[in-house]
Design a protein around this nucleic acid. Structure first.
Lengths: 202, 202
DNA sequence: GTCTATACGTGGATAGAC
DNA sequence: GTCTATCCACGTATAGAC
């Protein structure tokens, strides 16, 4: 019995356990409020290990939100069938991602963007360069209108995320995804391709 | 010369100075990140005075967001001219409030609602009982649809606030209010009185 | 590779002097 | 009414023992 009964050394998935704990902690509390100690406790490891594997808290956050989701993959689904109905498909695709486990990273980014200037910049850049620009570039539109159209889409989509995942306002928080697609899809469609100058009457 | 040259005693507007500093601090950083010490420094007073006037940090926050804005006052403006165009008028009224100095309190509440469960509850209750219910009660609608309509309006309006005041995504962040009214008003109008079940095609 | 101990900073809150 | 001094809790991060 050369070895004591203590915890086994070199646990191979300690890193993954930390990452998972960090993901939910950041998603539930945001960057500032989440603590390394809390994450370590949730993962069942020592706080020092977190630093050992990931460096600073900021590094850990970056690793957390650096999810293996390539927005480009979703583009064919959203835009493949042409501009008609793109709004509905975009809302459906967003809900699909946010409702999935990896959506926790998106919620973490959203929650943190409110308290941290650098995470807000991270979010702006992600929204603009990874999502909005790609979608809008595939639609034949007046280039001068693109920035406004893009940020209007952002107001609706991020507002939906805020109410559903952060503020948890009912009934949006637990509504069926297709209900939201039917209700909000047309809004996004109008922001993408419709008239946004006010000529459209109720 | 019975009196020294030190700071004058009994400064009557110290309380207001603290309140103003607290408002902008909470609006810029949220409840958690804003510190009593920082607020005191910004107000040019001692941290202990903050406690003396307002009690705990939570008490101070409540005093900060307890603004003298009665949503009921805005109702005639929004709904007075009938349901047609109510969406545009609601967006205009919101921007009027949020863009004004007292809007800082609203931004503070929004920012804080993301990190604090109790401020999120505060915001939910304010939204539901003070804003959405009042607006919707004045429109003749199927009562079964009211909660969904109300939270849809919330997704769009709060999303607008997030992008304009918190994330500061351009061009929405510095857009002319009437541009936003023209673009977003019809969305709110549809959520209030239109078809939200998906029959409306682009 | 894992954990203990600790340095270092910050922030809320209070007691009590002036 | 205002401020000094301080207590206490917590968080990040690191050094170094095992």
């Amino acid at each position: 019995m050369a070895r004591r009964t203590g915890r086994r050394p070199g646990n191979p998935d300690t890193r993954e356990a930390i990452l998972a704990a960090a993901r939910s902690a950041f998603a539930e509390r945001g960057f500032d409020a989440a603590s390394i100690r809390g994450i370590a406790t949730a993962a069942g490891v020592d706080p020092a290990l977190v630093h050992h594997y990931f460096g600073t808290k900021e590094d850990l956050f970056r690793a957390t939100v650096d999810i293996p989701i390539d927005p480009a993959q979703l583009l064919p689904t959203v835009l493949g069938a042409g501009p008609d109905g793109a709004g509905e498909r975009l809302v459906r695709a967003f809900l699909g991602v946010w409702d999935s486990p990896v959506g926790a990273a998106a919620v973490a980014l959203l929650r943190s963007a409110v308290s941290n200037e650098w995470t807000a910049r991270l979010m702006r850049e992600f929204l603009v360069t990874q999502v909005l620009r790609r979608v809008l570039d595939h639609l034949d539109l007046d280039p001068a209108e693109l920035p406004l159209r893009g940020s209007l889409v952002a107001t609706q989509v991020i507002g939906l995320a805020m109410m559903r995942y952060v503020i948890r306002l009912e009934p949006v928080a637990s509504a069926d995804p297709e209900t939201l697609v039917a209700a909000i899809g047309p809004t996004v469609q109008r922001y993408l391709t419709g008239d946004i100058t006010g000529d459209l009457a109720g």
